[in-house]
Design a protein around this nucleic acid. Structure first.
Lengths: 174, 174
DNA sequence: CTGTATATTCTGTCTGTACTGAACTAAACG
DNA sequence: CGTTTAGTTCAGTACAGACAGAATATACAG
């Protein structure tokens, strides 16, 4: 990964772009893209040079990727620098990311909805209507959580297979 | 909705908070939350007052919600102002939002991946490895698209039923 | 028409986040 | 140990997006 090919650059830039739309820091996303494409683990210094970002920026970004569990540090004999590599199993990567986003975005919302419903006083104005709306929303979040839990139980690869099956069935029927 | 109850305020603030995490403008999310809870359509002026934001801010935010198709303007006899109301079917709302996010985030990525794979020159350094990685990623995006298309075909309500069935099965088995 | 109410567009300001470069810490080498 | 190298933390800067308020446009009433 000393020099990027045009193709690699294109992918990395796009990934960074998409990252921002998903609320993921551009540099974090770019670093992930770089490591994902790299056949070998890269030291921070090299990442910084390749992407033209500050060394400190790489440090914090790598840390974030590590907390997500999709990047880890490995060591190379005769080199005391840390080398970073990305997980290569795409499905597992997204599973990890989704799990954490769920924790930060779905779970707190479920909590709030539950608390709201618990606190809802029948005497306050329009309580019936409010309850109806909150319950509908809460039901949705419960269902999503349920769906997520069910998918989590399936061993890796099964989702893929199910999906392929579904495709075939649909094609036959269509 | 002249005055918000504590509960409504809580919900609206939380929704705004979550919106920012999903890359949705806080005001847009808050307005949506307000309209969702409101038993009647509200004029822009009232929205601005209730949420303490500028009238102009409401105008642009409403526009965004309208393009998503989850808020629409309705008219009230004897009042020439536009009144805005939110869709109340939570499942349909999220379906609309997801559809559009898919268009903006999944589809372009699929395109880039396809183009990258098409352009990939076997002569460039590490072409085999790059191809492998790009294909894995592309496969994931194709699968997600497939999944989405299949779910889209199901009539509203079916997803809910399927989910409930799944829950029962799992409970029995567990 | 003119005046008033409503809605939109535009411009400058503000805020929050990303990022750099420097200072600092820790570890490895000789 | 001192020196070098890697890694982290911090303080200030830069930038993007959100927002308010003013200016403008549109529509309706009298």
């Amino acid at each position: 990964m000393a020099e990027l090919t045009g193709l690699q650059t294109q992918y990395i830039l796009h990934w960074g772009e998409m990252g921002t739309r998903w609320g993921i820091n551009r540099t974090v996303a770019q670093i992930h893209a770089l490591l994902y494409l790299s056949p070998r683990a890269l030291p921070a210094e090299e990442i910084a040079e390749t992407l033209s970002v500050a060394r400190s920026n790489v440090s914090t970004s790598i840390r974030e990727l590590e907390t997500w569990g999709i990047v880890r540090a490995v060591h190379v004999l005769g080199d005391r620098r840390e080398h970073y590599e990305s997980m290569k199993d795409v499905w597992e990567m997204f599973r990890l990311v989704i799990e954490q986003r769920k924790r930060r975005e779905i779970d707190p919302t479920r909590e709030v909805l539950r608390r709201c419903l618990a606190e809802l006083d029948a005497k306050e104005p329009g309580a019936d209507y409010t309850r109806e709306r909150l319950e509908a929303m809460a039901g949705f979040f419960e269902a999503v959580t349920e769906l997520y839990d069910q998918m989590k139980r399936l061993p890796t690869g099964t989702v893929r297979k199910l999906l392929r099956m579904g495709t075939k069935v649909r094609k036959k029927a269509g």
